[in-house]
Amino acid sequence: MSNHPLVEVKDLAKIFDVSAPWLNRVVERKPKMYVHAVDGVSFTIERGKTLALVGESGCGKSTVARLLVGLYKPTQGVVSFDGADIAATLATPEGRTLRRRTQMIFQDPYASLNPRWKVQDIVGEPLREHGMVNGSDELQQRVIALLQSVGLAAADVEKFPHQFSGGQRQRISIARALATQPEFLVCDEPTSALDVSVQAQVLNIMKDLQRERGLTYLFISHNLAVVRHVADQVGVMYLGRLVELADKKDLFDNPRHPYTRMLLDAIPDIHMTGRSRTPVQGEVPNPLNPPSGCSFHPRCPLANDRCKVERPALAEFQGIKIACHAVAEGRA
Rank of each mutant, 00 (worst) to 15 (best):
T260Y: 13
G70Q: 11
T191F: 07
V196H: 12
D269A: 05
T63G: 12
L209I: 10
S62K: 05
Q199L: 02
V157K: 01
F16W: 02
Q107V: 05
E46H: 10
V119L: 03
G131M: 08
V123A: 06
R142S: 14
Y259P: 11
V64Q: 15
G330N: 11
S19A: 06
G214L: 08
Q120K: 15
V35W: 01
V143W: 05
K30F: 02
E316S: 15
A52K: 07
D188P: 04
I267T: 13
I45A: 11
V41D: 05
G48D: 13
S192Y: 07
V26T: 07
Q103D: 12
H229S: 07
H4S: 15
H36T: 13
A332C: 02
I15G: 04
V202N: 03
L68G: 06
A246T: 13
R101M: 13
L12V: 09
E8I: 07
A323S: 12
N24L: 11
K30D: 00
Q76T: 14
Q140T: 10
S173I: 00
V79D: 15
M272E: 15
L53V: 03
A323T: 04
V26Q: 13
P182L: 04
E158V: 00
R331I: 02
N289S: 15
V119P: 03
F219C: 04
F164S: 01
Q141L: 03
L239Y: 03
P190V: 03
L23S: 07
Q201R: 09
G95L: 06
D208Q: 14
P298S: 08
G58S: 06
R228M: 00
L194C: 06
L218W: 13
V227D: 04
G95C: 10
V234P: 11
K73F: 08
K61F: 12
G70Y: 10
H162T: 02
G166W: 10
A88Y: 08
L263Q: 05
Y72N: 14
P268F: 03
D195W: 13
H271G: 02
R277G: 13
N289C: 05
P287H: 10
R171K: 09
V243P: 01
T75N: 05
L113C: 00
I205A: 07
L127V: 08
R171D: 05
K73N: 10
L90H: 13
V133I: 09
L113P: 00
Y110T: 01
L152P: 03
S149N: 10
L98G: 06
K308W: 03
D17F: 01
E283T: 10
R211Y: 02
T63Q: 09
S80V: 00
T260S: 15
T260M: 15
D39K: 12
D108C: 00
P31V: 08
Q163P: 01
M237Q: 12
C59K: 10
R66P: 12
R241Y: 04
D247Y: 05
T273G: 10
V280K: 12
